[in-house]
């Protein structure tokens, strides 16, 4: 046998709906339970009487005009340049973007920093390079470079000296008096 409280739950939902037919189990309960049956009838009759006796009185005829005039005088409504709904959506999108960016910055994987020599370490490296004794290979390479640079200069110097000697002999021959002359 269905309990009365289950029947009351159905009554709460459908008591004033005449079209609502109770389920088979509830119908059996109502058939056998005078209390629930009386409750159901009471609610349905009350709903019918309330709907039938609700009186509607005529409002004063001037009231509508008074309301419209008062609304126009109070603050004439003008449509905002940007609708409230659009402002709400724009604000919501901006908040979502800001929150997403903040979240991404908070949880993004940290980049491995590029190794950069500290200034002191760099200075020590330069100092060591300068003070390191020159190796044999370095000396030979330096000699070769020096020779390759000095050889053309030496040849040029010899040519200049030969030219100078020739010029000296020519001048000397021109200005030296001949012994054969009287």
């Amino acid at each position: 046998m269905m309990a009365c409280w289950i029947s009351r739950l159905w009554l709460i939902r459908h008591a004033d709906e005449y079209g609502a037919t109770p389920p088979a189990r509830l119908a059996r309960h109502l058939a056998g339970c005078a209390s629930c049956r009386a409750q159901r009838e009471m609610h349905r009759n009350l709903a019918t009487r309330l709907a039938a006796t609700a009186s509607h009185r005529e409002p004063p005829p001037f009231l509508a005009a008074r309301i419209v005039a008062a609304a126009r005088a109070a603050a004439p409504y003008r449509r905002p340049a940007v609708s409230v709904h659009r402002l709400r959506w724009t604000g919501a999108v901006m908040i979502a973007l800001t929150a997403g960016l903040s979240l991404w910055l908070a949880i993004r994987p940290a980049k491995t920093p590029r190794p950069v020599a500290a200034p002191l370490e760099l200075a020590a490296l330069v100092r060591e390079t300068i003070s390191r004794p020159m190796q044999l290979a370095d000396q030979q390479r330096l000699t070769m470079v020096t020779r390759s640079l000095a050889q053309p200069l030496e040849q040029e110097w010899q040519r200049i000296q030969a030219d100078a000697n020739g010029a000296w002999h020519t001048l000397a021959a021109d200005f030296t008096p001949s012994p054969a002359a009287p």
């Binding site: 009231l63 008074r66 409504y77």
Partner: peptide
């Protein structure tokens, strides 16, 4: 009557 007018004035403010 007064409350009816107040209702429509409030609706006028709330219509957006």
């Amino acid at each position: 009557e007064d409350l009816t007018q107040e209702t429509f004035l409030a609706a006028h403010r709330s219509i957006p």
